[in-house]
Write a protein that binds this DNA or RNA. Structure first.
Lengths: 111, 111
DNA sequence: TTTTTATGTATAATATTCTTATGTATATTT
DNA sequence: AAATATACATAAGAATATTATACATAAAAA
């Protein structure tokens, strides 16, 4: 897919996943999104890690590092502040999707 | 709406409108999109005009200037090359919208 | 009649975010 | 043994947006 379209949605995707999962690490997020979208959204590390760091710097995410054997994983979870912003971000996204549907008159998926 | 989400979709929106209308001028595009999306998408001039110029530079659009009284308007229309890219861009967009729906499980609009 | 709002195009400085490439390292599969 | 998957990270550069500014005419409102 043309990944240019994807621009601007990454933060909201991360926040959405973390609102449904207690804690996730970066690589897990990329795999989960790939799986959910049937291979359509492929998040690159160059986009993901800076995004996670930005969200952390904004105070929306906290981290916890865990050692698995000789390696480490950095788990991210929503802060209280992050939790509070979830509903706004999701309704902005819902509006955005609806706007795109209005412009492009796509057939919605069956729910 | 959070206009950050909007990033990346502008070119495709312009191309879509021009595929349905023989020729349009910049201001007309902003108004049409605002109307179609029930005020949700507000394209700023600072985003629009550079985008139109880029698409022209890429050979996807041609322009025609018309004088209306003491003023001028610059009409944009798809080139042959532009016409050829419409279907790809629209199917990329359809996939993108579907991907967003899969991640966010939004309620579709009634068609 | 003066002021505000709408119509209309354009650019420049700055900010943001993405792509692409690179780096490092362990674990697992072939 | 080599290739692939897992895992995090950053830097240079590209692309595109925001915000402000500029100029100008037309129409509507005060």
């Amino acid at each position: 897919m043309n990944s240019k379209l994807f621009r601007g949605s990454l933060d909201t995707i991360i926040i959405k996943l973390l609102s449904e999962n207690e804690a996730m690490y970066g690589y897990e997020i990329t795999q989960k999104v790939k799986e959910m979208t049937e291979e359509q959204f492929k998040i690159t590390e160059g986009a993901l890690y800076p995004a996670l760091h930005r969200l952390e710097a904004k105070g929306l995410l906290d981290t916890e590092t865990k050692h698995i054997g000789n390696r480490y994983r950095k788990y991210y979870k929503l802060t209280e502040k992050g939790e509070k912003e979830v509903s706004t971000m999701l309704s902005d996204m819902a509006q955005f999707i609806q706007g795109l549907q209005l412009v492009f008159k796509t057939q919605p998926i069956k729910s």
